[in-house]
Design a protein around this nucleic acid. Structure first.
Lengths: 408, 408
DNA sequence: GGGTATTTGTCAGGGCTCTCAACAAATTAG
DNA sequence: CTAATTTGTTGAGAGCCCTGACAAATACCC
């Protein structure tokens, strides 16, 4: 019940109040303007099915809260009094996103329209450093980003931190385990300099998937977003909401059995996807095994470089990984029947060499329904996804409940 | 947007009205009484967070619509005026369920409490018969059941028909394909004698899963319900709602690749689960291949009989099927992280021999999280699930929106 | 250029539904 | 039998949306 739709259960649970009604209608109006701006009050009314009077009241409130702005009158060319164009504000509430990666820190500020307005990224070797140090630097970067946003007229209304680790379902701002950073149950608030700006942590892969969903041209409501950072994980977006599973372990693609009698996996099972498409396995197969495990980003770049140069063992390794990935994704498609599959994280950068074999495997195995090859695509956002998703989380929340904003 | 929560999208779509608020609060009150009856108005108010005045008004309406009844005063023993006990009515609105199986027809009527009050099942060899004939007989059975329900004071408010076939996502009362019946795109309304009592078709496996969910003591909100009738299918219940997938093909467990290089499957792929745990495969492996494919029910009974008698090839075949099933379910658990796995349909009847190997496979392969063996269990309802689920669909709808009932 | 038609945004009145506060009814405790 | 307690109902009030009316602002037409 903390972040990104952990409030999904609410609907059937409690009673509805007039405030809930108002909240929803504010969100509906705001959403309509976001999706189809510029729109006049009358346009909104006609589109969402409220009266002009009601929309007027709702728009007034949204303007008061800084979510909407009134632009100049539009020269529509049509007969009748011209409507005053409404647009989602680009100068008021904003979301701050932070990211702690193995080799970098990131911060960004996104306005209510979803546009990134401030973007900072600094290289830092964070693996193994004390969490307090890393978080202090992240806080400094956050402060800089927020200050820069302020010069643009943006007011940060929420802060979310993308981390490459497990974030338990419970609230409390805990990061359970982040092996690549060497973290183990870190409570963000305990190390954050300013108690007023403590961000909420969230898993970076989940945020990457949500960013993809949130910034897509036409929203695909149900898709699987695969990313390989530490292990191989998949974020499941189902009907537009992140699905975490009953205990928060959904999307463990890496331990799907691909070849039941295959090599032993660290998890105790055999033939897991990770043994074929995990970073270590691909490096080994490509003959590049002796690699410093802390410098993850480099390994991917190295693979891409070798593959681009036509290095045969690397190409073979990636082709093999792609086939295994295709097998695991076949299971996902058969089970979930998603609208799309997105390759994110490291896979996005290796997509040129992975896609053919993944697609071939899917084409050969998914036969019950039609499975268009375009339904599998590399992430449009690439590495920027998690940070963008972190910032968009706040925006998304506000769009879903504009009363979170202080009344004007 | 027709049956069983095809209306899930609604929340974010349209604006909320006062009627929606009333609807939800009626549902909340009705749900509270259902879950904890007997409850007084004051109890309900305290439990759901509405005032006694509001609850009083809501209860009056629910009584007027026949959903609630007022029992005699309870001798509570506590000080103060005793509350009047409320209970979900057992004499008013009811749901009619129908089922067309390969070897039988079924009808039942369930009251608002969810209790089956009328239950009819007749043996009929339906495979290959004209759909019109079968549906005419089903209609007759439905009429009988409804008449019997009327003598109990029950008024049928909705009709749902469980069919062993594909039911497309669109409305219109179509059955796409039902191979075991030999049906191909049948429009129920075209063959139903009385246009006033045409039932809505729904896939029997989905209904079985919903019945399991709906009649469980403590509701498990996210689970996978496996059933093997024609092929091997899984119904996914996610956060209490049936998940159909983007195109309605979710849960195709039967074509998950279990052994990627295994035998060819009719679907065009290789090593699908169906080649190991499908009925035909198990019969073949058990040395019972020469079996009339139309008489499906008998095959399962035959297997159970042989296994019970200790027939070694049958036991081996079931053990092998269980291992393959465990492999496929490992993928499901890794991806979806459900709270439970339910073996329904034919698997429920063979659970004694399947469970050990399925559990062993899951225990060996699902290691990232804890996976309690009890989370895998045979269906509590067995063969009765689909019919019960068909009838409960109407009840469930009414519970979610009591204004569907005519006002008193 | 002026009148008319058309569309927009707002306002007042009314209905619905909840909350709050008060009260009669029904019971237990003493 | 009285006091205390709890229940269910009632009336006043607030919030929100809808209806209908109206001023404002534009295009069209003569």
């Amino acid at each position: 019940m903390t972040l990104v739709d952990r409030t999904s259960r609410g609907a059937t649970g409690g009673p509805a109040s007039q405030q809930d009604m108002r909240r929803q209608n504010l969100a509906v109006v705001l959403g309509a303007v976001r999706a189809h701006s510029p729109l006049s009050r009358a346009d909104v009314a006609g589109r969402v099915g409220l009266t002009r009077a009601a929309v007027s009241s709702l728009v007034d409130e949204l303007i008061g809260r800084g979510a909407l702005t009134e632009a100049a009158a539009t020269a529509s060319g049509r007969v009748g009094r011209p409507g005053r164009a409404l647009a989602v504000s680009d100068r008021g509430p904003a979301g701050l996103g932070l990211e702690i990666g193995v080799t970098h820190l990131g911060a960004c500020v996104v306005d209510l329209r979803g546009e990134p307005r401030v973007w900072r990224r600094v290289e830092r070797a964070n693996a193994g450093r004390p969490a307090g140090q890393v978080l202090a630097e992240a806080a400094a970067l956050a402060a800089e980003a927020q200050a820069e946003a302020a010069t643009l007229g943006l007011r940060v209304e929420g802060r979310v931190l993308a981390v490459p680790g497990v974030v338990p379902n419970q609230p409390g701002g805990l990061v359970g385990r982040a092996p690549n950073l060497g973290w183990r149950t870190v409570r963000i608030a305990d190390h954050w300099p300013d108690p007023d700006t403590v961000p909420e942590p969230e898993n970076e892969a989940n945020l990457g998937a949500l960013a993809e969903y949130w910034s897509a041209e036409q929203a695909v409501e149900t898709f699987v977003h695969v990313s390989a950072e530490t292990g191989i994980g998949a974020a499941l977006v189902i009907d537009g909401r992140l699905f975490r599973g009953a205990r928060g372990f959904a999307g463990e693609l890496g331990h799907i059995p691909v070849h039941p009698d295959g090599p032993d996996c660290a998890c105790g099972a055999r033939g897991c996807l990770e043994q074929y498409a995990g970073e270590a396995a691909v490096l080994r197969e490509a003959g590049l095994a002796q690699h410093d495990p802390a410098r993850v980003g480099d390994a991917v770049a190295l693979l891409a470089e070798r593959a681009g140069a036509g290095h045969a063992p690397t190409l073979r390794a990636l082709e093999r990984a792609g086939r295994a990935l295709g097998l695991a994704l076949t299971s996902a498609v058969e089970l979930i029947d998603p609208d799309g599959l997105v390759l994110g994280g490291a896979y996005a950068e290796l997509a040129d060499w992975l896609l053919p074999s993944v697609r071939a495997e899917l084409a050969a195995r998914v036969t019950v329904r039609s499975w268009p090859p375009e339904a599998l695509c590399p992430s449009a956002l690439g590495r920027r996804g998690p940070l963008l998703g972190a910032a968009l989380t706040t925006v998304r929340r506000i769009m879903a409940d504009p009363t979170l904003l202080p009344a004007g």
